[in-house]
Simulated assay, not measured.
Amino acid sequence: MSTNLIEFKDVSFRYGEDQPWVLKNVSFTIDEDEWVAIIGHNGSGKSTIAKLINGLLFPQEGEILIDGKKVTEDSIWDIRKDVGMVFQNPDNQFVGATVQDDVAFGMENRGISRETMVERIESTLNAVGMKDYLLTEPHRLSGGQKQRVAIASVLAISPKVLILDEATAMLDPNGRKEIMQTVSGLQDRQGLSLITITHDLQEVVQADRVLVMNGGQIWDEAEPRKIFAKKEELREIGLDVPFVAILADALLDAGITIAHEPLNHEELLEDLWTLHSKT
């Protein structure tokens, strides 16, 4: 039975007393092993949520619980043992002279034994497909390879939650696809709770649930299919919908009825094939 791993209770935050509220009375939960995508236009508060979960920021009102522990300045180092975060630009996270040094850094700070460190370096780099780059200097890696190492560095500390804050934004489509396939596989194998903050709709449709932020509040939350069924409402708050959903609407306007709201091309083709088989 799933239990709440992350809980926001009426959380409000602003970047200064004379500044507007970035988040206002935000409440939600995220379960163990759940993949939640957080979307919204720029300034809607989604990246602020990520920083609050990781203790980079603290709310002015409300409280945040991670695995039952309240996020405070006193608890923050315990919280960060459970929460790993990968940012948009992996260069900002590199601290080691080689790939293995970088993966070892977080573990060294936590006093993990050398024997365990060696095992985790090997297992995490193998998990992200970078085991052959152990002694490579990070600056010699491609963007996708750097992001894989950044993910391995976070996984090495064995977090319960992995946050990707626009982590694929700087990659080409193939790079984004490869990273998300890697992360999805790791989540399945390691039982991670995964939070992705992204503008990439192909990432969003893979999630178990979507939180839609608008004006510092939760506009809606549901599974991706139900969210993207609200096409016009999403456009009104400045968000896009997947191309396949637009295509499905065009087919409907042409008199071709689709059985359900498709999330990808495979689902749309299957619906069309089923429809064709019945005619």
Rank of each mutant, 00 (worst) to 15 (best):
F13S: 02
N126P: 01
F105M: 10
L171H: 04
V241F: 04
S153E: 05
P59W: 11
R114M: 07
K146R: 13
L5E: 09
A259Q: 12
L162E: 00
R176L: 10
V154E: 05
V128I: 07
L155P: 01
I112T: 14
L141D: 07
E73I: 11
K46T: 14
G111K: 04
I179C: 06
V149F: 00
D271I: 01
V154N: 06
A259R: 14
V36K: 11
E61M: 13
K51E: 11
P20G: 11
D91S: 12
E203C: 02
A248F: 10
R120Q: 11
A167P: 00
H199M: 09
I195S: 04
D33Y: 14
Q190I: 02
H265R: 12
H260Q: 13
P173F: 07
I218Q: 03
M1W: 03
E137V: 11
F87P: 02
I53E: 03
E233T: 12
G96S: 08
H139T: 14
H41Y: 08
E261K: 02
G175V: 12
V241K: 15
K160P: 03
R235V: 01
R209L: 03
H199E: 09
T257L: 10
L135A: 11
L141H: 11
M180A: 05
L272W: 07
S12T: 14
K160G: 06
L272M: 13
L275D: 03
V241L: 03
D132F: 10
Q202T: 08
L134G: 01
M213L: 12
P59F: 11
I258L: 12
P90T: 10
V118D: 08
Q60D: 14
E223P: 05
I79F: 05
D101T: 15
G45A: 09
E236R: 12
E115I: 12
N174Q: 11
G84Q: 13
F228K: 04
A248P: 01
E122F: 00
V205I: 15
